[in-house]
């Protein structure tokens, strides 16, 4: 009976990390990537058992789609279960299939909001802030930080699923720690974004009214800047958010901005 070594497990994780979306497609999404990651270990576990090998390969080619780093835990979990099945433990092979399908949604939800929704945007905001001042080190440091984070987080999640199993993943999801992190990071993100709007969204009113001979009233300088500097960028951002929340698509809002900017610039309303 073949046993998997730690090296096999690491190979499975690494293949998943590298190739989860290498053949990303609408029919199975990451299904092929999942199969690819499992294959070397399946080949070892079912070396003498050709029928078992075919069946195992088939059940790992199902439709699969999740956030790849958080979802690495599902790959780890499936690997542990395949190991037990090949050892002759009484596990219904279809249980792996339903477990995979059942877990990919919730883990994608959490993974996307933590990784793409909070962590990466926060890192980007700070890196961009320095990059726009011409600091070449900013993108380099950003690359190093994400290198450690993506590999580290994905490996941690894989091993969590592989070693601790189903319950560990569930209890981590339900402990409320993640909610707290998302909650705190949302506040932090909001605050930094507020500063970002003031610093980097630029929109100035170009209207100048002649009051008397040689006396001009500059709407931007004498009104907007006097009340609240950055008022127009704030209004524009809130307007975009309002449109998005009303269900308009990103492209719709983008075209709206282009038309508004072009018209405003041509008419001299914006300077």
């Amino acid at each position: 009976m073949a046993k998997l070594t730690k090296k096999d497990a690491i190979r499975t994780w690494f293949t998943w990390f590298m190739c989860a979306q290498a053949a990303y497609n609408y029919e199975r999404m990451q299904g092929l990537g999942f199969l690819h990651a499992m294959c070397p270990s399946l080949g070892k576990l079912y070396k003498e058992n050709e029928e078992g090998r075919k069946a195992a390969m088939e059940r790992h080619m199902d439709f699969f789609n999740t956030e790849p780093f958080t979802g690495a835990s599902i790959v780890g979990l499936s690997l542990a279960m395949e190991e037990e099945i090949s050892e002759g433990k009484d596990i219904d092979p279809d249980a792996i299939r339903s477990l995979k399908t059942g877990m990919m949604g919730p883990l994608a939800g959490i993974g996307d909001s933590v990784v793409q929704g909070v962590v990466i945007p926060l890192l980007l905001i700070f890196a961009i802030n320095f990059a726009m001042q011409g600091v070449v080190a900013a993108p380099i440091i950003y690359m190093l930080v994400t290198l450690v984070m993506t590999f580290g987080y994905s490996y941690f999640m894989f091993m969590l699923g592989y070693k601790k199993g189903h319950d560990a993943i569930l209890s981590m999801l339900e402990s409320g720690v993640i909610d707290k992190v998302i909650n705190g990071a949302s506040m932090l993100g909001c605050m930094v974004l507020g500063a970002l709007v003031c610093n980097y969204v630029s929109l100035n009113c170009g209207i100048v009214i002649e009051q008397a001979n040689g006396v001009y009233f500059n709407l931007q300088e004498s009104l907007f800047d006097a009340i609240l500097p950055g008022m127009l960028p704030l209004l524009l951002t809130m307007g975009c958010l309002w449109l998005l929340k009303k269900g308009k698509s990103t492209v719709w809002v983008l075209v709206f901005i282009i038309v508004l900017g072009a018209a405003g610039s041509a008419l001299g309303i914006f300077a």
Partner: peptide
């Protein structure tokens, strides 16, 4: 002008 406005969408 348009380029200056675009980050508003990114933030939104």
């Amino acid at each position: 002008t348009i380029g200056g406005m675009m980050p508003a969408l990114g933030v939104a």
